[in-house]
């Protein structure tokens, strides 16, 4: 990260922290939603951008996290602070269980497996009414309190989610700069050489997939608390597809790619509300154009003008 980039990052964060003070509850809701969405999108970027795998099932993990937390909190009265790690671990384990057989066979089959998995998870959420509330969903999901301070209000919860997503991003940043994370760079740049130097591609990819899944699970827990209500439609296949496009449009494999992509998917439609359904139509075709002319995503635009990896 260059100095200018660091300054830009700090300014961006400060602006984002201050803006909600001037917004009404719907605006705050959207900004919180972006933070929550980002948690899952950061995880997806790890899978897509760094491990080079297509996952078309991130919403399934988003949903598993949300449902595990909602069920624990509403039906068993377990606190948010316990539900959060349980949901994250559950997603991590499910990620391993799904990724292991899928990656063992053939690498691009993980995409297909995640797609099928997403549909299956959706069916279970919708049909196992005793557990998941079926199409009625689960309502009255509580928001947590921290050191006795309730995060019920729109602004307190926004700051909670904002700080959380920064922490999550920091952990991922550190992870990618650890020796483990560096192996990825090696993998991505030259898989054959990396393998010859003893990097176990499958193990690394699998771990990245499971960590990405856990991030989505964490996002899901926050989503449940934000909306206070979840139902299967929030975690359908189309949600996964949109999230995948968001990450790629922003610039997969770039740390801040998901941020830009999520803004395009979550905030921009609100800004451009007068476009209504045309917004997604334009978005869809823009993705095609982007793939043809700028397959590295919007953030790779900078590289067109200057050499060097930038934020990579």
């Amino acid at each position: 990260m260059s100095k200018t980039q660091r300054i830009a990052l700090v300014i961006g964060l400060v602006l984002y922290a201050v803006l909600p003070q001037f917004l009404k509850s719907y605006g705050v809701y959207l900004m919180t939603l972006l933070c929550v969405y980002l948690m899952a999108a950061f995880g997806l970027n790890l899978i897509v951008g760094y491990a080079g795998q297509m996952s078309i099932g991130q919403a399934a993990f988003y949903g598993i996290g949300a449902y595990v937390a909602a069920i624990l909190m509403t039906k068993m009265g377990i606190s948010f602070w316990f539900a959060l790690p349980i949901a994250a671990i559950a997603c991590f384990v499910v990620g391993l269980a799904l990724g292991f057989p899928a990656l063992r066979v053939q690498h691009h089959y993980l995409a297909f497996a995640t797609l099928g998995f997403n549909v299956l998870v959706f069916l279970v959420m919708r049909n196992e009414e005793d557990l998941t509330g079926g199409t009625f969903g689960i309502s009255n999901i509580p928001r947590p309190s921290i050191f006795g301070y309730s995060l019920d209000g729109a602004l307190p919860f926004f700051y909670f989610a904002f700080v959380s997503v920064i922490l999550l991003a920091a952990v991922l940043w550190w992870l990618l700069r650890s020796p483990w994370g560096r192996a990825f760079a090696a993998l991505r740049d030259n898989p054959i050489r990396a393998e010859s130097t003893g990097v176990n591609i499958t193990a690394y990819t699998l771990l990245a997939f499971a960590i990405g899944a856990a991030c989505a699970g964490i996002g899901g827990v926050y989503l449940a608390a934000l909306v206070n209500f979840i139902e299967p439609g929030q975690f359908s296949l189309s949600v996964s597809l949109l999230m995948l496009l968001a990450v790629i449009v922003g610039g997969s494999g770039r740390f801040f790619g998901p941020v830009l992509g999520s803004i395009v998917v979550v905030l921009l439609p609100e800004w451009l509300r007068f476009l209504q359904d045309w917004y997604l139509a334009i978005f869809g075709f823009a993705v095609i154009v982007l793939m043809v002319y700028l397959p590295g995503g919007l953030l790779s635009l900078g590289d067109r003008f200057k050499s060097g990896g930038g934020t990579r």
Binding site: M54, H108, A111, L241, L242, L244, L245, I248, Q276, D277, W278, Y279, L280, A281, I282, F283, G284, F285, A286, V287, I288, L290, M291, V292, P295
Partner: peptide
């Protein structure tokens, strides 16, 4: 030429684009 993945992503974009185009238009 760029491989399978960019094309897959582009067809996903096409799918959303066409659907919304019909819905809006």
């Amino acid at each position: 030429r760029h491989g399978v993945i960019p094309l897959v992503i582009a067809t996903l974009g096409l799918s959303i684009g066409v659907k919304q185009l019909v819905k809006a238009g």
